[in-house]
Design a protein around this nucleic acid. Structure first.
Length: 480
RNA sequence: GGUCCCGUGGUAGAGUGGCUAUACAGAGCUCUGCAAAAGCUUGUACAUCGGUUCGAAUCCGGUCGGGACCUCCA
C-alpha cells in the first residue's frame, strides 16, 4: 500500500518512497539524558516508533532507525557538577574529572530513559544505534572545520559560530519554519549569554571551554579551541555518519523545527554540500495535561514513572496517545487513560476468547485500518476501524477457521499498535480457600439458596474475586 | 512585536459542503434467581456574530477564548 506522510519541508502530505532501494533510513532527535522520560518525551518517540512499524508492516520496507542520545549540554553539565542535587548515589562518587562525572551522570539517565521507552512499547531493540554525542566529537569537529573552510562560520573568543548572514546569501534559511527577519526577536527577550557572536541569529557550533566544565581539545588553522560542541552540530554529524545524506525521515517535536532542525539542515548544507539532509521532516505536536500546558509549576508534569506509581499501565498510556493524531495537540487526562484502559481490556478479552479456540493465521488484512495508517499515520481513524472490525466479528458468530483469520488480522494490526497480547489466556491461579468458598457458593446456588449464595459472593468480592455464573459452572476472575 | 494552530456531545477524539465516526461514561433491552461478563438499542454536539450557498461543524470575515514557535522545553 502506498504510504503518505506530512512533510514540514513542503507543508503538504506527500507519497513516501525510500530514496535508496527498499530501505527506510530514519533519524530521531533523541533525549537529553538528565532525568526520567516524561509523557511529552513519550509522545515524541512514539512517533518514530509508529513510523517504523508502519513502514515495516504496511510499506513492506526495511528500516534503519537511529535515535541519538544528547549527553553533553547545559543541563547535563549542571546536573553532573559537584554539589548538584540531581546526582544519584547509584552514579558513584563524583571525581575531579568533569568528563568522568558527566559520563556517569548521563549513562545513568540514558539507561533509565531507554527502559522507560521500552515499557511504553517503543521498540528500542529496533533502533539500529543510539549514538552518544560525546562519542562523535571528532566527526563534529571535522564538520565544523569544513563549515569554517567553506566560509560559513567564524571563530570568536575561543568559540565557533555559524554565520547565518553568509549562509543566507547562498542558501535558503527558514525552510522548516517561517522566519520573519524584519521582526526577528522584537518583543522577545534576547538570549543574554556570555558568548560573543556577530548577529543574534548566529548560533554556536563550538563553545569555548569554561572553568570546571567538561571540554575536548580542538584546533582549527593552528588555533587552540578547547571546548565542547554546540547543540545542533551533533545531529548533523551523527546522521551523516550513521545514515548518509540525504536519508529518508527526520523526526522530532514541533519545537525542534526552529532553531534546532533548521540549523542542522544549514550545517549539513554548509559542511557536507549535501543537497538535503533528509527527504521528509516529520514533527509531532505537543500535549497538554488536563487542558493546560504541562509544566512543573502547574503541578501537572508527569513522568511515566509518576503514572505507573498512580497504578496506570504504560500500554494504556500508549493507546491513549494513539487515540489522537500526532499533528494535533493531545489533551492528556487521567480519566482519559482510564477510559482507554477499559477499551483495551475489552479487545484483549475478545482476543483471548478467540484464542481459546484458534491460533492466529495470517491472510486477512483490515483494509480500513491500514488505509488510515498509510494516510499520514491516522491512528484515531485506524482505531475506529479496528473497533468496527471487532464489532462486526462477534465471537459467538465465528467458526474456528474465521476465528483464526480474525486473530491473524488483529495480530498484524498489533505489530503497529502494540498494546495487545496474543499468547494464550493466562491461567488464573486461584487460592484454595477462595476455591473452597466458590464451591460452597455454587452448591448453595444449585440448591437455590440465594441468600447464602449471595453472602458467599460478597465474601469472594471482599477477597478480590468476582464470580461469573454459567449454565453448568462458574468462573472466577480477579478484580483488577 | 511577528508567524502559525485550535475551539465538536458528560469526557476524549475523528470528520473540510448534504449521509451513524469511534471509544469511555449514561439510559433502555436480551441473558441471569439477582448479578457479573457479553450482545443489542439509544439520547445529547459542532465557541460566538455575520456572510457565501438550495444546503455549513465543514468555505469567507469579525469577535471571544485557548495554545505553539520566534528563549539549548518533546
Amino acid at each position: 500500500m502506498q504510504l503518505h506522510l506530512y512533510n514540514t519541508l513542503s507543508k503538504t502530505i506527500q507519497p513516501f518512497t525510500p530514496l535508496r532501494d527498499n530501505l527506510v533510513r530514519m533519524y530521531s532527535c533523541g533525549p537529553t539524558v538528565y532525568g526520567p522520560a516524561h509523557i511529552g518525551n513519550l509522545r515524541a518517540f512514539l512517533l518514530p516508533d509508529l513510523i517504523q512499524r508502519v513502514m515495516k508492516t504496511i510499506g513492506g520496507y526495511d528500516v534503519r532507525w537511529v535515535m541519538n542520545v544528547t549527553d553533553i549540554d547545559d543541563k547535563t553539565i549542571a546536573g553532573s557538577a559537584p554539589g548538584s542535587d540531581s546526582w544519584q548515589d547509584a552514579m558513584g562518587e563524583q571525581t575531579p574529572d568533569a568528563r568522568a562525572n558527566l559520563r556517569a551522570y548521563t549513562r545513568y539517565f540514558e539507561a533509565m530513559f531507554l527502559q522507560d521507552l521500552a515499557s511504553f512499547g517503543i521498540r528500542t531493540e529496533d533502533m539500529a544505534a543510539n549514538p552518544r554525542a560525546t562519542e562523535y566529537i571528532e566527526s563534529m569537529q571535522s564538520l565544523i572545520a569544513d563549515i569554517v573552510r567553506n566560509g560559513y562560520a567564524y571563530v570568536r573568543d575561543g568559540s565557533v559560530y555559524f554565520d547565518v548572514a553568509a549562509y543566507r546569501k547562498d542558501h535558503p534559511y527558514g525552510r522548516l519554519f517561517h522566519i520573519d527577519v524584519e521582526n526577528f526577536r522584537e518583543g522577545v527577550r534576547i538570549d543574554a549569554d556570555e558568548y560573543e557572536r556577530e548577529s543574534v541569529s548566529d548560533f554556536v557550533l563550538w563553545k569555548g571551554r569554561k572553568v570546571d566544565e567538561p571540554y575536548w581539545e580542538f584546533t582549527i588553522d593552528g588555533i587552540e579551541l578547547p571546548g565542547r560542541p554546540g547543540w545542533h552540530i551533533e545531529c548533523s554529524a551523527m546522521s551523516y555518519e550513521l545514515l548518509g545524506l540525504p536519508f529518508d525521515i527526520h523526526t522530532g517535536g514541533v519545537d525542534l523545527r526552529f532553531p534546532h532542525h533548521e540549523d542542522e539542515l544549514a550545517q549539513c548544507t554548509a559542511g557536507y554540500h549535501a543537497p538535503e539532509q533528509a527527504a521528509f521532516w516529520v514533527h509531532n505536536e505537543f500535549l497538554e495535561v488536563e487542558g493546560r500546558k504541562m509544566s512543573k509549576s502547574l503541578g501537572n508534569f508527569y513522568t511515566l514513572r509518576d503514572l505507573i506509581a498512580k497504578g496506570m499501565d504504560p500500554l494504556d498510556v500508549r493507546l491513549a496517545m494513539l487515540g489522537s493524531h500526532y499533528r494535533s495537540v493531545l489533551n492528556f487526562t487521567i480519566d482519559g487513560v482510564q477510559a482507554v484502559a477499559t477499551a483495551r481490556r475489552r479487545v484483549q478479552d475478545y482476543i483471548w476468547d478467540l484464542r481459546d479456540r484458534a491460533v492466529p493465521v495470517p491472510g486477512l488484512v483490515i483494509d480500513g485500518v491500514e488505509a488510515a495508517l498509510a494516510d499520514d499515520l491516522h491512528t484515531p481513524r485506524a482505531l475506529a476501524e479496528l473497533y468496527a472490525f471487532v464489532g462486526a466479528n462477534p465471537v459467538s458468530q465465528l467458526d474456528d477457521d474465521r476465528a483464526a483469520l480474525v486473530l491473524g488480522a488483529l495480530q498484524r494490526v498489533n505489530t503497529i499498535i502494540g498494546v495487545w497480547n496474543f499468547d494464550e489466556r493466562p491461567t488464573v491461579i486461584i487460592p484454595d480457600d477462595v476455591r473452597a468458598i466458590a464451591e460452597d457458593r455454587w452448591a448453595a446456588r444449585v440448591a437455590k439458596n440465594w441468600a447464602e449464595s449471595d453472602r458467599l459472593r460478597d465474601i469472594l468480592a471482599g477477597l478480590g474475586w468476582t464470580v461469573k455464573d454459567g449454565k453448568t459452572g462458574y468462573e472466577l476472575q480477579p478484580l483488577s
